[in-house]
């Protein structure tokens, strides 16, 4: 579904282990292979603690994987150091969940927006005002906001400033870590529209982390579902909800409250919570919450396999599930 020449980031076999108390190891990401393409959005869904932010932090070079490589335009960025790394950072920018904590409260909006440009000596300090106004206009904020401080703005406005700061360096990739989760639904919709407008104009690749599968489906081209550090399903977003293959993806979908749903129906949701990533069971990571768990699932770890072009599922029984007993 994607053009190979648009491939911009190719993450191969990414594994990250953290040392934990008692000599144990915590595997936050386990052999993850994902690609980002120019002008396309990859949505990464999963519950808290599944490793989705850990993975995206590698793409922004905030952390390094234990194993694996990340090719950005064909070059491995996990090996970059010093000045080379600093210069590389301008190509990949990030928007954080909480726009209140991601700004310095003592800086004016003008300085916040222009700081990246000054760091890379793209503008002179005297040009700051004009540049800030230009970018404020681009994110649909009044130009005189340049003189404000972050606390004088609403959450939605702050998130727009965060987006402005992310695009000033003309990055090729933007990572959005739950960028709309702290916002009201109506504001969320406006922010999403802004992001997608900018994506079209500048042909940016977006990595979109979110726990709301309904929202991801509406903004992403491709969706990766993550559970306990593993990618369990990778599919084109337009195939949701009908073609979701993995029981976990289906469980996520059943947990969505939709204003058009049948309210008399009892809400179905998987029981229990994600087990601790410190003792991931052998076999399928989802086994103890899966309604269809069989003997095989307890011993063999299912690998991602293609069930039709562009759609991969890591489940032994994903093609029989419709007819299986719970």
């Amino acid at each position: 579904m994607f053009d190979e020449k648009d491939l911009i980031i190719d993450a191969r076999h990414i594994t990250r282990r953290f040392p934990a108390a008692g000599g144990k190891e915590l595997t936050a990401c386990n052999d993850i292979n994902l690609q980002l393409y120019r002008g396309k959005t990859l949505g990464l869904v999963g519950e808290s603690g599944c490793g989705k932010s850990t993975f995206m932090r590698f793409l922004v070079s905030l952390d390094k994987p234990t194993e694996g490589e990340i090719l950005f335009n064909g070059k491995d960025i996990t090996k970059l150091k010093g000045e080379e790394l600093r210069l590389h950072r301008q190509h990949i920018q990030m928007v954080f969940q909480d726009p209140t904590n991601s700004f310095n409260p003592k800086m004016k909006i003008r300085d916040i927006i222009c700081e990246p440009l000054l760091n890379f000596k793209k503008i002179r300090p005297s040009e700051k005002d004009a540049v800030a106004r230009k970018y404020l206009e681009m994110v649909d904020l009044p130009e005189d906001f340049a003189d404000r401080y972050p606390h004088n703005m609403s959450g939605g406005q702050r998130q727009r400033v965060a987006i402005a700061r992310a695009i000033v360096l003309d990055p090729e990739v933007i990572i959005m870590d739950e960028a709309t989760s702290a916002l009201d639904v109506s504001v969320q919709k406006n922010i999403i529209e802004l992001i997608l407008k900018l994506q079209k104009e500048k042909n940016i690749a977006i990595g979109f982390i979110c726990h709301d599968i309904g929202l991801v489906r509406s903004v992403a081209h491709q969706i990766a579902v993550m559970y306990l550090g593993n990618i369990v399903e990778l599919m084109p977003a337009e195939d949701l909800p009908q073609k979701a293959g993995h029981p976990y993806t289906q469980a996520l979908m059943k947990s969505v409250f939709d204003i058009n749903m049948d309210f008399s129906k009892k809400i179905e949701s998987i029981e229990g919570e994600v087990p601790s990533p410190l003792d991931v069971p052998p076999g399928c990571p989802f086994q103890n919450r899966c309604e269809y768990c069989r003997e095989k699932c307890k011993t063999d770890r299912p690998l991602l396999k293609e069930i039709y072009p562009g759609h991969k599922v890591a489940c032994h029984f994903c093609q029989q599930i419709g007819g299986m007993e719970k």
Binding site: T41, V185, S186, Q188, K189, I192, E193, L196, D212, I213, G214, L215, R217, S218, V219, A220, H221, A237, E238, L240, P241, M253, V256, D258, I259, N260
Partner: peptide, 16 residues
Amino acid sequence: RQLLDAVPSLGGMRYV
């Protein structure tokens, strides 16, 4: 109506 429209839905419209 605006609030209702803004709720992301699994069967709803997609932006892309």
